[in-house]
Every structure is written in structure tokens, then in C-alpha cells.
């Protein structure tokens, strides 16, 4: 669609200047997108904190969650982040095969996480917790929990789709290292959000 021949050779044509942030516009845009997306979660978590303090009492975590299972979920997500980082590193070294292998491992980890989350949700729903009800105390818990973990799950799903596309493109050899890096940035961001959700929902 685009004519990519540059009418001015790079020596005379100033194609972007020296960025004060030291990266190309793509990565910069990705970072700003991550900042805005992160603030979306910050908004949710602030509301959660507010409602929890406004409720006065809050259900005991141990009676609702199986913390060992949550630990397993967290382990899966952190591991998928590490495999993703390795895939990015491999791609930067030009090792396409290794990058692809670790991309697929990341996909596997992400899928496992989603399945475990689905299991956790169904356990809670079976026990009687919904968006509007909470058998263990204030209904605000159910609303906050399903809203925030649901949004995080949606982000995981989006990340998986991006990863799948990246994997196919890497297998075909049409992805640049930068493409894998940006998919990686998004994936780590999803992991980053989980760090906050894990602490604020299950531990505090």
C-alpha cells in the first residue's frame, strides 16, 4: 500500500532526529499506551481501596481463596514473563528458532493462567459469590473482585492473541526483533498488574 522508497537519502533527509528518550516512536508509543492502561487499573484499584475502607469489615481471605492455588497461578504468570523476556533476548541476538520456542512456552503459560483463573472463578461462583453477592460479607467484595480480575483476565486474553500473532509471524520470519519486544512489553505489563492484584486482593 505504501511506497516505502525514500526520495531523500538518509544522509541529507532528517528522518526523526535524535529522540530525547532514546528510542523509536513505536516503542515510545507502546510505553505511553502501557502508562494509560496502567492508570486504568490504578483507577479500579483506588476504587477498590475506597470501597473496602468504606465497608468497614472485609471477609477473611483464607476462607474464600485457596492461597496455594493462587500461588500456583502467580508462579505460572511470572514464569511466562521470564520465558517472554528470554524470547525477546533471543530475538535480539538473531536466534529466531529459540525466540519462537520461548514464545510458544509463554503462550502455554498464559493459557494455563487463564484456565486456572476460570477454575477459580467457577469455584467462587459455585460458593455463591457474584458481582452483586458475597456469602462471606460485604457485596462490594464480589463486585470489586470480579471486575478487577475480569479486566486483568481480558488483558491476559488480549496478550495471548498478540502473542499468537507474533508467534505466527516469527515462524514465518516476518517479525522484527522490535515486534517481539513490543509484544513482550505488553505481556510483562500484564504480569506487572497481577503483582498489584495479587498483593491487594489476596494478601492484604
Amino acid at each position: 500500500m505504501h511506497d516505502r522508497t525514500d526520495p531523500h537519502p538518509p544522509a541529507t533527509h532528517w528522518g526523526g532526529g535524535v529522540s530525547p528518550v532514546g528510542t523509536g516512536w513505536r516503542k515510545l508509543m507502546m510505553w505511553w499506551f502501557i502508562i494509560t492502561d496502567g492508570l486504568l487499573f490504578a483507577g479500579f484499584l483506588a476504587a477498590y481501596g475506597f470501597l473496602r475502607l468504606a465497608a468497614g469489615s472485609w471477609p477473611e481471605r483464607a476462607q474464600m481463596f485457596h492461597l496455594e492455588f493462587i500461588a500456583l497461578m502467580t508462579f505460572t504468570l511470572i514464569t511466562s514473563s521470564a520465558t517472554m523476556a528470554t524470547a525477546v533476548g533471543a530475538a535480539q541476538l538473531g536466534n529466531r528458532k529459540l525466540a519462537l520456542r520461548f514464545l510458544l512456552l509463554t503462550l502455554l503459560g498464559g493459557t494455563a493462567f487463564l484456565l486456572m483463573q476460570a477454575y477459580e472463578w467457577s469455584t467462587l461462583i459455585t460458593a455463591g459469590a457474584t458481582l452483586t453477592q458475597n456469602p462471606w460479607g460485604p457485596p462490594a467484595f464480589g463486585a470489586c473482585f470480579f471486575l478487577i480480575t475480569g479486566f486483568h483476565g481480558t488483558h491476559v486474553l488480549t496478550g495471548l492473541i498478540i502473542l499468537a500473532i507474533t508467534a505466527v509471524r516469527t515462524a514465518r520470519g516476518i517479525t522484527q526483533a522490535e515486534g517481539i519486544e513490543m509484544a513482550g512489553l505488553y505481556w510483562h505489563f500484564v504480569d506487572l498488574v497481577w503483582v498489584f492484584i495479587f498483593t491487594l486482593f489476596y494478601l492484604v
Binding site: L39, A42, G43, L45, A46, A47, Y48, G49, F50, L51, R52, L53, A54, A55, G56
Partner: peptide
């Protein structure tokens, strides 16, 4: 955002 909003829940309570 968090520090400005969440503690006000105490006030609501």
C-alpha cells in the same frame, strides 16, 4: 490517584 481516593473511604464509613 490511590492516595487521594482510597483513604476517603474511611470518611464515607
Amino acid at each position: 490517584l490511590f492516595a487521594g481516593i482510597a483513604p476517603d473511604g474511611i470518611r464515607a464509613f
